[in-house]
């Protein structure tokens, strides 16, 4: 039996909204470490790895390890029936081919029950090596989203260039080019707006901005984002979900042309 009751139901709604454009389906692994999903996009360019730890839930019960094959589109459809302040409970029997979802209003005066049919999904679980990155950037997630949105107008690729001067995002296309330079700044009114750069060595990588923009849809979940860059290694973009979990995105770089 798997049962997990999430007080902040909106977290699950936002989480599914964030990843459903990138991965259409995936196996949600339920075990003592929490509820986890690792899934690649169909082009094998990007990978989503998310975790909600057991302490995200009250209660969290998982009698044995289970893997729930879920269509993110279908789950998103059902979650739209939940209000933002609803408490969401997920429930599945050990051998079930369905996931039960209960949405409970804060005062328990409205309780809705939905059932999602599960799928058999053959998914490859990738081993992600531990990496010490050349440059790590902590910044406002809204600012990152803005930069992706702006530069996507110019090109399908964005080059991120970390140097002593700061972090430079560049896009060059048919109409011209654009660049945005971010410098370390911890002297801000709101802590969430600070830009912190930890640079071991300079690095320059080019990425498909379409994916960066899709990752940035996670912004409503977290006002900070961390970018981890190393030469010839996929980008790691991490959004922490309070103290209860995270969404990490990995994106393969483009080869210089």
């Amino acid at each position: 039996m798997f049962e997990a009751r999430l007080n902040q139901g909106a977290v699950l709604k936002k989480l599914v909204d964030a990843v459903r454009d990138i991965v259409s389906e995936g196996n949600f692994d339920c075990n003592e470490n929490g509820l986890a999903l690792q899934a690649m996009d169909s082009a094998h360019v990007a990978l989503v790895a998310m975790l909600l730890r057991p302490d995200a839930f009250e209660p969290y019960r998982c009698d044995r390890n289970m893997s729930l094959g879920i269509s993110l589109k279908s789950l998103g459809t059902i979650l739209r029936c939940a209000s933002n302040d609803d408490i969401i409970t997920l429930r599945a029997e050990d051998t079930a081919d369905q996931l039960a979802l209960t949405f409970e209003s804060p005062q328990s005066d409205k309780v809705s029950e939905y059932v999602l049919n599960l799928m058999d999904i053959d998914s490859e679980h990738l081993g992600i090596p531990d990496t010490s990155y050349d440059t790590v950037i902590h910044m406002s997630s809204a600012e990152f989203q803005r930069i992706c949105r702006d530069l996507q107008q110019l090109s399908d690729s964005v080059t991120i260039d970390a140097s002593k001067e700061g972090i430079k995002f560049t896009a060059t296309g048919q109409l011209g080019s654009g660049q945005v330079m971010l410098r370390q700044n911890m002297n801000v009114d709101r802590e969430e707006d600070a830009t912190v750069i930890e640079m071991q060595q300079p690095v320059q990588l080019t990425f498909a901005v379409k994916y960066l923009s899709m990752f940035a849809k996670t912004t409503p979940l977290c006002n900070r984002v961390t970018l981890c860059l190393s030469k010839d290694v996929p980008l790691l973009l991490e959004y922490k979900i309070d103290e209860i979990g995270y969404i990490r995105y990995y994106l393969a770089p483009k080869v210089d042309s």
């Binding site: 082009a43 094998h44 990007a46 990978l47 990738l126 090109s155 399908d156 996929p234 393969a252 770089p253």
Partner: peptide, 13 residues
């Protein structure tokens, strides 16, 4: 600009 690499060339199955 640039050729897109696959994640499978970086991460082990």
């Amino acid at each position: 600009s640039g050729q897109q690499r696959s994640l499978l060339s970086f991460f082990k199955k």
